[in-house]
Amino acid sequence: MSLTENLANNGVNVEALIGAREALSGAPEAAKFTWRATCKWMNGTHSHSVVKGFYGLGEEQNHKTAFEFDADHPEVFASEDKGATPVEYVLIGLASCLTAGIAAVAQYRGIQLRSVQASIEGKMDIQGILGIDGDVRNGFDGIRVHYDIDADATPDEIKALVAQSQKRSAVFDIVTNPTNVTVEVN
């Protein structure tokens, strides 16, 4: 596809992304990124997290501003509900990653988006986290995402956007595949 004939405008700079892809395929070291967050206990189940710096393209990078997030548990858990629950942040991470991917793929394929709306839910049996039943896992039993998309494309082309976005999504991969986690103290 010739990009010069691509009249769609979803606000995604595909030329820059393609340029980065070409540059990085010749310089794989620069493609190695490290994402970071800090998380500070406030009180009870309330914590305060900040993301600011990350590493990539061979050097330290920074967001334009520090982004701050409060996490807590709701009042039904006898908490103060000062923020979204951590598992809701996971849902946000997945939905926002897939949505960004849909915009990028649509741009690349020359498809104009008019609206994209995701609703996402994760089912969980809290007998797992409460230690009531050892056969119940702590995490989600499954996650469901529903997209309502209005775009200048056929229904199958829209489905293909969503499928391709899953294929290239970091958070989809993180959620669907195992990851080694190492937690150290002091």
Binding site: D156, K159, A160, A163, Q164, Q166, K167, F172, D173, V175, T176, N177
Partner: peptide, 17 residues
């Protein structure tokens, strides 16, 4: 992986194209 459904969806869509 939990990606089976999407891998099948990708293949179905590609076949239909």
């Amino acid at each position: 992986s939990g990606s089976l459904r999407n891998h099948c969806a990708l293949a179905d869509l590609k076949m239909n194209r």
